[in-house]
């Protein structure tokens, strides 16, 4: 009898440290599946962030580098420029990419570095215990916005995909979510596309994945998924924001 479901080969057979109900596990799996399906694991180097995914270097069965907080796009640039034959990806959270690492992501995108960026946006600092992120929605309570994020005090959440899509450099930018099985499938296609682009030399590709944090949101996993649908998606609309392959076609 044929096996119809198994662990992707690019995903290590270990117990991860992620909290129950967190969607990092799904996103890791999608990345590993994309690597497997493109047959690139033996020439892929991943770059782990600082944040919940800090230990990602233990979870992917390829060469890995651990970057300083926010610097993964610069580290990726270094690797890719000196070994263009490698497939280089970063896996970053919202504090890492959208706060401390904004300069690095904006300029890697502007340079059109031929790398793949997986940007996991759950609107909170999970690893450090639930502080406000640059992507925390207005009104949401965190340990550093205990009265709820007030735009007058803490400013507005950042829409990274829209912002980067204004640049000439990127080849492909899409925001996806993983709060329903259908959306997981869509996210899979986007992530695979982002890696395939690099293999084909098309340039900078970023997939923003809306994610949950049941622990720090103070919710059950199901409630957390509903919050993504009801609160995050309206502010962070899903879709393709930049696609050089589609440009010139009727939109």
């Amino acid at each position: 009898m044929a096996k119809v479901f198994e662990r992707p080969k690019a995903l290590a057979d270990v117990v991860t440290h992620y909290c129950p109900g967190c969607t990092h596990g799904i996103i890791h799996r999608l990345v590993a599946e994309a690597i497997d399906e493109l047959g690139i694991v033996d020439r892929t180097v991943g770059v782990a962030p600082v944040g919940c995914a800090v230990l990602a270097y233990d979870y992917f069965e390829c060469d890995m580098q651990e970057a300083a907080h926010g610097r993964a796009p610069a580290v990726c640039t270094g690797i890719k420029r000196v070994r263009p034959d490698l497939i280089v990806f970063s896996y970053q959270g919202d504090g890492d990419l959208a706060s401390i690492g904004t300069a690095e992501i904006v300029h890697a995108a502007a340079r059109g570095e031929n790398i793949t960026v997986i940007f996991v946006n759950n609107g909170i600092y999970g690893m450090t215990g639930g502080q406000m992120a640059p992507t925390t929605l207005v009104g949401h309570k965190t340990t550093t916005s205990p009265y709820g994020r007030d735009a007058k005090v803490q400013g507005h959440p950042v829409r990274i995909s829209e912002m980067l899509a204004t640049l000439e450099g990127p080849a492909y930018i899409e925001r996806v979510s993983v709060h329903t099985p259908q959306l997981v499938n869509r996210a899979k296609q986007a992530i695979k596309r982002a890696f395939a682009n690099q293999v084909e030399g098309k340039g900078f590709s970023l997939v923003e994945v809306l994610s949950t944090c049941p622990t720090n949101w103070g919710m059950t996993p199901v409630e957390a998924l509903q919050r993504v649908a009801n609160e995050m998606v309206p502010y962070y609309p899903l879709g393709v924001f930049k696609d050089i392959d589609a440009e010139g076609e009727d939109k």
Binding site: Q65, R71, L86
Partner: peptide, 26 residues
């Protein structure tokens, strides 16, 4: 080879990290 003008000294040294990690003289 290549000279990359980074967006900051911070980015430049982290590009060095990546390149050195990939095994070249940088």
């Amino acid at each position: 080879g290549a000279m990359v003008q980074a967006e900051s000294e911070i980015a430049a040294i982290n590009m060095v990290y990546g390149a050195a990690g990939a095994g070249v003289r940088v």
